[in-house]
Simulated assay, not measured.
Amino acid sequence: MKWTSALAIYLLFWAFSAFFVLPFHGRKAEDDAVPLVKGQEPGAPATVRPLRILIQMTIVATISFLIYYVAYVRGWVDPDVLSGRA
């Protein structure tokens, strides 16, 4: 696998990891008894910590990519089978 392909696949894993990480960051503003700002959704998070979210996304993406890469190197993931050519 070329390093550019590996980088592209890693970036896809990183982007998709947001769907696994973000649902776990959800203390609502109404749960914290914080006064809501006019126009604020009651279900919106009380605080947002983007650096923490990015770090968790990176950890999830790295672990997922390593699992994929080991499977690719050992031949468990065959590109021809996945593309329907075999």
Rank of each mutant, 00 (worst) to 15 (best):
Met1Cys: 05
Lys2Ser: 15
Trp3Glu: 09
Trp3Pro: 02
Thr4Phe: 15
Thr4Gly: 14
Ser5Asp: 13
Leu7Asn: 01
Ala8Thr: 03
Ala8His: 09
Ala8Trp: 12
Ile9Phe: 11
Ile9Asp: 07
Tyr10Asp: 00
Tyr10Leu: 07
Leu11Thr: 00
Leu11Ile: 04
Leu12Lys: 06
Trp14Ala: 11
Trp14Thr: 02
Ala15Asn: 04
Phe16Val: 01
Ala18Gly: 09
Ala18Ile: 01
Val21Trp: 01
Val21Pro: 02
Leu22Phe: 04
Pro23Gln: 03
Pro23Gly: 04
His25Tyr: 10
His25Trp: 13
Gly26Glu: 04
Gly26Ala: 06
Gly26Arg: 14
Gly26Leu: 09
Arg27Thr: 11
Lys28Gly: 06
Glu30Pro: 01
Asp32Gly: 03
Asp32Val: 05
Ala33Val: 09
Leu36Glu: 04
Val37Lys: 15
Val37Pro: 05
Val37Met: 11
Val37Thr: 15
Lys38Ser: 10
Gln40Trp: 06
Gly43Phe: 00
Gly43Ser: 11
Ala44Pro: 05
Ala46Lys: 11
Ala46Cys: 02
Ala46Phe: 08
Thr47Trp: 13
Thr47Ile: 05
Thr47Gly: 05
Val48Asn: 11
Val48Ile: 15
Arg49Lys: 15
Arg49Glu: 13
Arg49Thr: 05
Arg49Tyr: 12
Arg52Ile: 01
Arg52Trp: 02
Leu54Trp: 13
Gln56Asn: 11
Met57Lys: 06
Met57Gly: 04
Thr58Gln: 06
Val60Gln: 12
Ala61Leu: 00
Ala61Asn: 00
Thr62His: 08
Thr62Phe: 12
Ile63Met: 08
Ile63Asp: 08
Ile63Lys: 01
Phe65Cys: 02
Leu66Tyr: 05
Leu66Phe: 13
Ile67Glu: 03
Ile67Asp: 12
Tyr68Arg: 04
Tyr69His: 12
Tyr69Ala: 07
Val70Asn: 08
Val70Glu: 08
Val70His: 08
Val70Trp: 02
Val70Gln: 02
Ala71Gln: 07
Ala71Asn: 03
Tyr72Trp: 06
Val73Thr: 14
Val73Ile: 14
Arg74Cys: 07
Gly75Phe: 00
Gly75Pro: 11
Trp76Asp: 05
Val77Glu: 00
Asp78Leu: 01
Asp78Arg: 14
Asp80Thr: 07
Asp80Cys: 08
Asp80Ile: 01
Val81Ala: 09
Leu82Ala: 13
Leu82Gly: 10
Ser83Ala: 13
Arg85Cys: 01
Ala86His: 06
Ala86Ile: 02
